[in-house]
């Protein structure tokens, strides 16, 4: 039976979700919870929240939550199957879309489309910054760090951003150790 094999079950859950994640991985978060907790009863609601926190604390896309669900269910093999199932279908679609996009490079309609899509991409990034501020529960310290980072990189575009990311982390982490909790 297909349903009794956890690896097939993982692929059957995350494969379709891959194509449903319109607007990014956040879109399928509620569906992931529903499938993992209610439908398949792979874990308790608290387990799910814990895994979500771990995925957010870790580097990489937040959707690595799927990796953790697979890991919880069937170890590293389960993690691998869940990750591939989540990324493969949408990646094929994206490849086809961007290939088509590139094939028509240089045509008049391509440059018009490109000129029309560019401000939409910029606006979506601005929206991303706004929702990150909200999700991170950002306060004055976060605003200051974001502003300083942007200022440094606008004045010196070749400044290594990784060092800025690390400095910001050390700054708030260090303040916490001194008993100062700011966000």
């Amino acid at each position: 039976m297909a349903e009794s094999n956890p690896l097939i079950a993982l692929a059957m859950v995350f494969g379709p979700l891959s194509l449903a994640s319109i607007g990014g991985g956040v879109a399928i978060l509620p569906a992931m919870q529903h499938q993992a907790v209610d439908v398949h009863q792979w874990m308790s609601p608290q387990d799910f929240v814990d895994l979500f926190a771990v995925a957010r604390m870790s580097p990489g896309p937040g959707s690595m939550l799927a990796t953790l669900i697979g890991w919880k269910l069937y170890g590293v093999t389960g993690a691998f199957v869940a990750t591939v199932a989540l990324f493969l279908p949408s990646s094929f679609l994206c490849y086809a879309a961007t290939l088509t996009w590139d094939r028509h490079k240089g045509t008049k309609w391509h440059s018009i489309l490109q000129e029309g899509l560019t401000p939409v991409g910029t606006g979506l990034l601005a929206a991303g910054a706004i929702s990150l501020f909200r999700i991170a529960d950002a306060g004055p310290a976060s605003w200051a760090i974001a502003g300083a980072t942007a200022g440094i990189l606008l004045l010196r575009p070749r400044f290594p951003p990784i060092s800025l990311l690390m400095a910001a982390g050390l700054c708030l982490g260090g303040l916490h150790l001194l008993g100062i909790d700011v966000r």
């Binding site: 604390m57 560019t118 401000p119 991409g121 910029t122 990034l125 601005a126 991303g128 910054a129 990150l132 501020f133 991170a136 950002a138 310290a141 976060s142 605003w143 760090i145 974001a146 502003g147 300083a148 980072t149 942007a150 990189l153 606008l154 951003p161 800025l164 990311l165 690390m166 400095a167 910001a168 982390g169 050390l170 700054c171 708030l172 982490g173 260090g174 303040l175 916490h176 150790l177 909790d181 966000r183």
Partner: peptide, 27 residues
């Protein structure tokens, strides 16, 4: 370990700064 959580908030804030750079240049 609260320091790890606090540090990650700092990293996120700097990442927002990187986004702002692209928004400003695109604008």
């Amino acid at each position: 370990i609260g320091a790890i959580t606090a540090g990650l908030a700092g990293v996120t804030a700097a990442a927002i700064g990187l986004l702002l750079v692209v928004v400003i240049r695109g604008t």
